[in-house]
Amino acid sequence: MSIEVANISKLYGEQKALNNISFSINKGEIVGFLGPNGAGKSTLMKILTTYINASEGVAKVSGFHVETQKQDVQHNVGYLPEHNPLYLDMYVKEYLTFNAGIYKVSKSRIQEVIELTGLTPETHKKIGQLSKGYRQRVGIATALLHDPSVLILDEPTTGLDPNQLVDIRHLITTIGKDKTVFLSTHIMQEVEAICDRVIIIDKGVIVADKKLEALRDDKEQTVIVEFDYRVEDTFLLKLPNAKLVKNTHGFIYEITFATTQDMRSHVFDFAHDNDLKILQLNQKNASLESLFRELTSK
Rank of each mutant, 00 (worst) to 15 (best):
2 S>R: 07
5 V>S: 09
12 Y>E: 07
14 E>G: 00
19 N>S: 15
19 N>C: 07
23 F>E: 05
24 S>E: 15
32 G>S: 13
32 G>N: 10
38 G>L: 13
42 S>P: 12
43 T>K: 02
65 H>W: 04
66 V>W: 11
69 Q>L: 10
71 Q>F: 08
73 V>A: 06
81 P>K: 12
81 P>W: 08
82 E>D: 14
83 H>T: 14
85 P>L: 05
87 Y>N: 11
88 L>Q: 11
89 D>V: 01
93 K>N: 11
103 Y>G: 06
103 Y>E: 09
107 K>Q: 14
124 H>Q: 14
125 K>T: 12
136 Q>V: 01
155 E>F: 06
156 P>V: 06
157 T>K: 06
157 T>S: 12
160 L>Q: 08
167 D>T: 05
171 L>W: 12
173 T>M: 13
174 T>E: 15
174 T>L: 11
174 T>I: 02
176 G>F: 09
182 F>E: 02
194 I>T: 04
195 C>Y: 10
200 I>E: 10
205 V>L: 09
206 I>W: 06
209 D>N: 15
224 I>V: 12
229 Y>S: 12
236 L>M: 08
247 N>L: 13
256 T>S: 12
256 T>W: 03
257 F>N: 04
260 T>V: 03
265 S>W: 01
277 K>I: 06
288 L>R: 06
293 R>K: 13
294 E>Q: 14
294 E>V: 01
